[in-house]
Amino acid sequence: MEKTWNNKAWFMVLPVLVLVAFSAVIPLMTVVNYSVQDTFGNNEFFWAGTDWYVEVLTSDRFWDALTRNLIFSAIILAIEIPLGIIIALNMPKKGLGVPVCLVLMALPLLIPWNVVGTIWQVFGRVDIGLLGHTLEALGINYNYVQNPIDAWVTLIVMDVWHWTSLVVLLCYAGLVSIPDAYYQAAKIDGASRWSVFRYIQLPKMKRVLLIAFLLRFMDSFMIYTEPFVVTGGGPGNSTTFLSIDLVKMAIGQFDLGPAAALSIIYFLIVLLLSWIFYTVMTTSDAQS
């Protein structure tokens, strides 16, 4: 059958283009404009050139926050992806257990981010929180307000609790799409549980894992609300990630020029890392 070629499809794309223009392109252009100027308000701007970029790129504050972000994202991915796969593999594939498990898994995702932060802030408190109080009763010296390691552990556990469900649901969607014939063939061949996972389940989950990996990387790299509510970037600056630093700079100090320069650098880092992950994973997928 011969394909019909016309340009009507462009009109279908037009609403998305308009939406993206207003929600992303115009704000991005404005941030670029701010990043080369200085302002004291009242819509008055003074040319600063590349000064803010130099200031940000040569400051310890930026590199420290970036390092914290990269470490946080690496830990989150190292925990949530394997844990998500393990939980998805052990979820029931049929029967009443399926909807029960799916609802339970979806529950953390339905809670707004600031509420999650508040829950864990209270949960971790030594005086009234269940976690903090229990740990203290067990003789463990835990205080996320004063100890940087405790603050990091709290944030990591909170993020794992909040977002592993997303990885589970995506992996589960990949698993249930595998036809039974694959498992039957593996059974006839006497394949081990590991072989079934390695050669059937993992390849079939690859695409959803790519989505899960990218979503979790971008989200953890841009995390703001939960650490802001739980630790406010402290103790000291130990949990001050780039996003928190950015808000402190833009709203706390009203340094809009440096904050805009930091935003652009932050955006470019996210873009580069996402592109690398996407390219590596899609290329290995195509080769396999």
């Binding site: 050139g49 590349t50 000064d51 970029y53 130099v54 790129l57 040569t58 650098i265 470019l268 873009l271 580069l272 592109w275 390219t279 290329t283 195509a286």
Partner: peptide, 30 residues
């Protein structure tokens, strides 16, 4: 060693150029 279209090559060029400029600003002081 992976397939690229000319759109991909433009993206890689622009992204790389952005980082060349950032490196120049960071190490060369602008």
């Amino acid at each position: 060693r992976f397939e690229t279209t000319r759109g991909d090559r433009l993206f890689v060029s622009l992204l790389g150029s952005a980082f060349i400029h950032l490196a120049w600003l960071g190490f060369g002081g602008g």
